[in-house]
Amino acid sequence: MNPLLSVENLSLEFRTRSGIVRALENVSLQLPEGGSLGLVGESGSGKSVLSFAVLGIQDAAAKITGGAIRFAGNDLLADGGSAMKNMRGRELAMIFQNPRVALNPIRQVGQQIEDVLLRHTALRGAAARARAIECLSDVRIPDPERRYTAYPFELSGGMCQRVMIAIALACKPRLLIADEPTTGLDVTTQAAIMRLIRDLGREKGMATLLITHDLGLARDFCDNIAVMHAGHIVEVGATETLFRVPAHPYTAQLVRATPVGQERLEALASIPGNLPDLRRSDLPPCRFSERCELRSATCATPLPTLTASAGHVVACHHPQARTSS
């Protein structure tokens, strides 16, 4: 079966005054219809840049230097992005990190949902309003008629995030990109929002790309996980496999640095060093090699793409053996 979203060898650069930042290099990933993929990594690893590129809303200084993005068979980059204008918001939608900043502070939340409907559907007037109220009730907002006229500042953080989800889902998209949808929310609200996204995804057969730095969250809500480091995807695999037998040393260290399920503080691992400066002209083929314990002379040669098991891919010369099972 053809994947719904397929990113193939995508490279992206930012041209800045202090040099060219190679933000993405040869990034490939696939997301099947109705599936869920978690994109994890430290801040600055390129997770958001990748998702913006998929939606064609990257910064003006960004330039895609190679590769392709295919959505349901169509090449999104082919005609300079004009095909994207009609698909964005209808077929692909996004939930942004901070709902208070992403919502328009001086428009009623119901109207902000209607804006999407007016742009992409034939609904007008009372019908559009009725549909907007339906969207609010879809995301389990109590008393949707009254909330239609609320402004973002009148709602709690969790409610604002629900409104944003309602806007994203108004046109029943086939792909939802959620960029850190619960950062800044309380754990109890986080649990409610994540379950809502998961349940709505199942109801509507929608694929989800979840961007997060929280491995525990990705583990709970995604079928597959892709790990990013400094603009590279270093490992992709089924969630359970990735946690049980991480093959890339970076993934293994991320798993050990997460306090979830750890019994002692001493058992927490830290990852030495920082992300490399992506403006450097002498970036090694493996951008993790300078922080890696397993580095050897072969790491200076081009990266291999190894298949550890079915559907489990790793870009490393020294993939870790199945130490734990």
Binding site: E42, S43, H213, Q253, A257, P259, S270, I271
Partner: peptide, 14 residues
Amino acid sequence: LDVSVQAVILQLLD
């Protein structure tokens, strides 16, 4: 902080 840094700071506090 990122998880990778969080671990070091927690161990430092301990």
